[in-house]
Design a protein around this nucleic acid. Structure first.
Length: 662
RNA sequence: GCCUGGGUAGCUCAGCUGGCAGAGCAGCUCAUUCGUAAUGAGCAGGUCAGGGGUUCGAAUCCCCUCCCAGGCUCCA
């Protein structure tokens, strides 16, 4: 028998017998690898271990603890779930079941329009464990389109997928069908699923999974089509990896800004106001004021002008801007006033700023003109879409519109990007990537040429910034493409923050002009930009990023002073007045309760510094400093020394945690 | 808007197949005066989300509405 030669990822060559599969290669390389192997990548294509190798192939073996390996085992786990559901609900139809970030899902239609309940998850999970214990093989089979249609005749979603691919449609179902032929994976005589693969060799390789929740999901993501029952699960390569993921979810839940917002008395969502409408309490109001004041001071330094505009306007403004054509679904319905005159709540600030630009004749000497406003806008979000402070119906944007010439556009954008990233870093966010969103299909105004110029300019600036950039095709606004800054938080989640949009349309719609140096009327370019996105949402992200432990400069209460006994009150008040005079936010709690109880409350409320003063402090003019996150207080600190230390910390946007390096 | 699951005191929750609405924490009052994460006692607190229905009787069963959570769609 002759041999063939294949190349391994490290570049080395290895001979295997003719007809050997990827699995045989794994065995030849080593026992451990053979035991770990889930799938293979042959000449760049992910495939089953059972794939026969050819002379000259480049082969790598896919193991569980890799992105590809996890994808394979998640996808295979989805198949096991489908089989479990079919066993428990004979006649169930299944649609699509891909691997996703951290797990998988599968969409079903149950017989008699039955619905999954939360209790069903346990039953399904238990049936899945049985299937895994049976160690069923995943057997790949290839079929013609007609054979495929016959095999899945009782699975209408599969039939739609097969015929869609056959007719050259539905290429998005890439995890189900691969194009030229139909493949399926058979687990038992009675269960097979349409699938491109690859899959693990047998169900026994799976098991570190948990079903998470049941949800409705539209067939093919189209809200006009049937809604199916989706079951989400998470799956990992080991029990430890699964446990780590579940702990991550618990950590995220502990940081939930809606919970912390109530516990720390920052803000609330009174039911009387309606969905997506919030109020900021004094403590949350302080955080917000500090954030807004800091933002204002940075904008002053960057040559922005401050403007104000009303919350409602006659409809003609949004007719001119195009919002009523393109954005009306997201707008509150109009109020009818003055014999049929319609007034709208504003969903965006931009048209107002254009009017300010147009209020008098503008010279090229004034450009770039940067108009800034903390502008409150109202958007009629679908009721199911609202979420805490991150998706609301009333919000305040740190919104600015920059009017400049075409030749200024590029520099202005580049400087803006630097400004944005610096500002975000000042709030403790420093891990970014950029997203470039391009022209939305069928929902855009303006010429092809303008769009091309705008997209190319933004891409150029993003490239020059030297930060990782990903493209979001079709994700732009109706009037122009955008760059958004995505920030990773303390536990690795990404949030879309700043957006920078280039717009040639609004100036034209409003006929905005400036007089150029050669005395011609020219059209300015408009740059829309919001750095926090919305102040509400930014606060939500900061609450979660810091888990409620705000850096000292942002903390609603910076210092709490506790006297050991009430005969220390006089000194406590002296300390309080000294701290107030130094511009610190300080609260005193008198000695009606034991010291331990008062300390505990201050800790629970995440106050950065607790000062405890007793007999020796009164005598020496010192304080006992208990800093957040530490359980070893510092006794006998000179009060002036503490104030000076805290001043430095605030100026550098530090925190007790950072001071200690924890 | 759609799917699933929820809504009992400020918060977290108990309350079984329909039969007297409860606990802990928080709050208030009084006592306690204490050196680094919960002092004690007492008091007050509810249209069981709202409305309708079934029933001798509804927090509990049915219907409608509102609100919340997780998804889908959409999006800052």
């Amino acid at each position: 028998m002759s041999n063939i030669t294949v190349q391994l990822p490290d570049g080395s060559l290895r001979e295997v017998p003719t007809g050997a599969t990827a699995a045989d290669l794994a065995v030849a390389i080593g026992r451990r690898l053979a035991g770990d192997a889930l799938a293979a990548r042959v000449n760049g294509i992910l495939c089953d271990l059972g794939t026969p190798l050819s002379d000259g192939d480049t082969v790598s073996i896919v193991t569980p603890a890799s992105d590809e390996g996890r994808d394979v085992l998640r996808h295979s786990t989805a198949h096991v779930m489908a089989q479990a559901v079919v066993r428990l609900w004979p006649g169930a139809q299944f649609a699509i079941g891909p691997a996703i970030t951290d797990g998988f899902y599968y969409d079903f239609r149950l017989p008699n329009d039955a619905r999954f309940s939360d209790d069903d998850l346990e039953r399904i999970e238990s049936e899945m464990r049985t299937i895994i214990a049976e160690n069923q093989p995943f057997q790949r089979e290839e079929h013609t389109y007609d054979e495929g249609l016959a095999l899945f005749a009782d699975q209408p979603f599969k039939v739609e997928i097969i015929s869609g691919v056959r007719d050259g449609r539905g290429g998005d179902d890439e995890s189900e069908v691969s194009g030229s032929l139909v493949t399926s994976y058979r687990n038992t005589d009675s269960f097979r699923d349409l699938c491109r693969g690859p899959h693990v060799p047998a169900t026994g390789r799976l098991g570190h999974f948990k079903l998470m929740r049941v949800a409705g999901a539209y067939w093919r993501g189209d809200e006009h089509r049937e809604q199916l029952q989706r079951v989400y699960g998470t799956a990992w390569e080991s029990a430890e990896a699964l446990a780590t993921h579940l702990e991550f979810l618990e950590e995220a839940a502990r940081r939930d800004h809606r919970i912390l917002g109530r516990e720390l008395d920052l803000f609330s969502f009174p039911a009387e106001l309606g969905p997506g409408l919030s109020v900021f309490h004094p403590r949350g109001g302080t955080v917000r004021r500090v954030i807004e004041e800091y933002s204002r001071s940075r904008h002053v330094a960057a040559d922005y002008e401050f403007v104000y505009s009303p919350h409602i306007t006659k409809s003609v403004l949004f007719e001119t801007s195009g919002h009523l054509d393109w954005f009306s679904e997201d707008m509150y319905p109009p109020m009818e006033l003055d014999e049929g005159q319609a007034y709208y709540l504003k969903p965006m600030n931009c048209p107002f700023h254009v009017l300010i630009f147009k209020a008098r004749q503008r010279s090229f000497r004034e450009l770039p003109l940067r108009l800034f406003e903390f502008g409150s806008v109202y958007r009629y979000e679908k009721s199911g879409a609202v979420h805490g402070l991150t998706r609301v119906r009333g919000m305040t944007q740190d919104d600015a519109h920059i009017f400049c010439t075409r030749s200024q556009m590029r520099d202005e954008l580049a400087n803006l990007l630097t400004f944005v990233l610096d500002l975000l870093r000042d709030f403790g966010l420093d891990d970014f990537y950029l997203e470039l969103s391009t022209r939305p299909e069928g929902k855009a105004v303006g010429s092809d040429e303008d769009w091309q110029v705008a997209e190319a300019t933004l891409a150029d600036v993003a490239r020059a910034a030297g930060i990782e950039t990903v493209r979001d095709e079709g994700g732009g606004a109706f009037y122009g493409p955008k760059i958004s800054v995505q920030a990773r938080d303390a536990i690795g989640r990404t949030h879309q923050l700043s957006t920078i949009q280039l717009d040639f349309q609004l100036p034209a719609r409003f006929d905005a002009e400036y007089v150029s140096s050669d005395n011609h009327r020219e059209r300015p370019v408009m740059i829309h930009r919001a750095l926090f996105g919305s102040v509400e949402r930014f606060i939500a992200i900061l609450v979660e990023h810091y888990a409620g432990n705000f850096p000292t400069w942002m903390a609603p209460e910076q210092v709490r002073v506790l006297g050991v006994r009430d005969d220390h009150d006089e000194y406590v008040d002296k300390v309080r007045r000294r701290l107030r005079a130094a511009g610190l936010r300080v609260v005193v709690e008198t000695a009606n309760e034991p010291l331990g109880a008062r300390i505990r409350r201050a800790k629970v409320e995440k106050v950065p510094y607790i000062l405890v003063v007793g007999d020796s402090d009164v005598a020496e003019g010192t304080v006992g400093v208990n800093s957040r996150g530490s359980d070893t207080p510092e006794r006998g600190v000179d009060l002036d020394e503490f104030i000076s230390r805290l001043g430095d910390e605030i100026a550098s946007h530090g925190s007790p945690e950072r001071r200690r390096g924890t």
